[in-house]
Every structure is written in C-alpha cells, then in structure tokens.
Design a protein around this nucleic acid. Sequence first.
DNA 1: TCGAAGATTGTCT
DNA 2: GACAATCTTCGAG
Length: 207
Amino acid sequence: MARILQSGFYDRETEVVAQELLGALLVSESPAGRSSGMIVETEAYLGEHDEACHAVAGITHRTTPLYGRPGIAYVYFIYGMHWCFNAVTRAEGLPSAVLVRALEPVEGIALMRLRRPRASRDIDLTNGPGKLSAALGIDGSMNRYPLQRRPLVIREGERVDATSIETTPRIGITRSADWPLRYFIRGNPYVSRFPRARNTAPAPRYR
DNA sequence: TCGAAGATTGTCT
DNA sequence: GACAATCTTCGAG
C-alpha cells in the first residue's frame, strides 16, 4: 500500500503541493465501504494576499482551518448545496490550501454511483469539486480532519511528469481571476473543464 | 437583522 | 449558453 502523505508534504509552497498532489490517491472510508480516486486537477489558494482565497477575510469562524496545521482538510459549503474539499498547506498561521477539483475513480465506483444517482455517465461521477465530494461522501463533518488517518487519507500515487501538467487560471472566481494557479493532468478525461478551444472563443486572457 | 455574493451543478433552450 | 436551485458566510446598518 502506498505511503500516506505526511504533514511535511503539505508544509511547502502551495503551488508546489498543488502540482505534486496530481496523481495522488484520495481515499475515503465509510460504513458503506471504501471509495477512492486519483487526483487529476487542483487549484492553489495562496493566503490573505490572494483575493480569491477565503483567507482574504482574515480569521473568521469559516476560515480557521486554513490557519491550522498543514495536512488537514478544509471542507466548506457553497451555493447552498455543494461541498468543496481542500487540503491545507504551509505552516500554521499561513492560511493557504489546495482545492481538489477532479478525480479519476479507482475504488468503490458502485458506491459512487449510489451517492451520485444523477450522474448519467461514470465520467460525471468525480469531474468537479462538488461532484467528487458527493461521490466520496465528503461533507462538513470532515472539516479540519487530519488527512493522515481514516476516514479520509491522501496516499502517494503515480509520479506525474512535469511536462504532463497543464497550468491555467482558476475556474469560477472573479477576483485574481487571471492568476495561473490551476493544474491538471494533460489529456485526462476526468478533468472538470478544458481551456476554451472553440472557434468562438476570445483570445486567452492568461499568458 | 438584512442583503448580497459565492472556489457549483444540472436542466432547459 | 443561460439560468435556477439553495443556504452559509460576512459585512453593513
């Protein structure tokens, strides 16, 4: 069984952690069984100076996990219906995290289908932050949980070559929207969205 | 206490 | 591509 990523792994530059989490295995255990997936897409949120990061509000009831130990979970509720899963990075007091945006299912696919009955195709089980949380049974009860023990663990996975990592601006945000802090495995079919490529698309804003 | 915005998803046109 | 669903969070008053 692959090594569990320890606190020291997360206590580094958030951009580095976000890229090195690609290929790692997110494993969730529940009474219903185990489900897991390989991380194929992440975003970095850098701290109080990052306008898109929740920590821009400073220490509040919601953001305290961001200021906590590296390697704990930050799980928050968004748009009235979805949970988003993050891994907290950097030393205590430096509020930054990596949002996991998409997984490639590995174990417990039948259980994921039960948890996401609206997904008509298997590819829709985990190709988005709200989707993967639902598929793995992740919710607010796991906020602040250390990611080194059950029920939620991240294990070392396949090493992803730097040349296979694509970098783009983050998705769905309005502030600091052009910072290139989204990373995904090029060509992986479970990535949530691909860069604009239609002939109607405007020129990319990022460079 | 109130109002607006939000790291999304699914459905409809 | 547009938009509704749904509710927590936080700042303003």
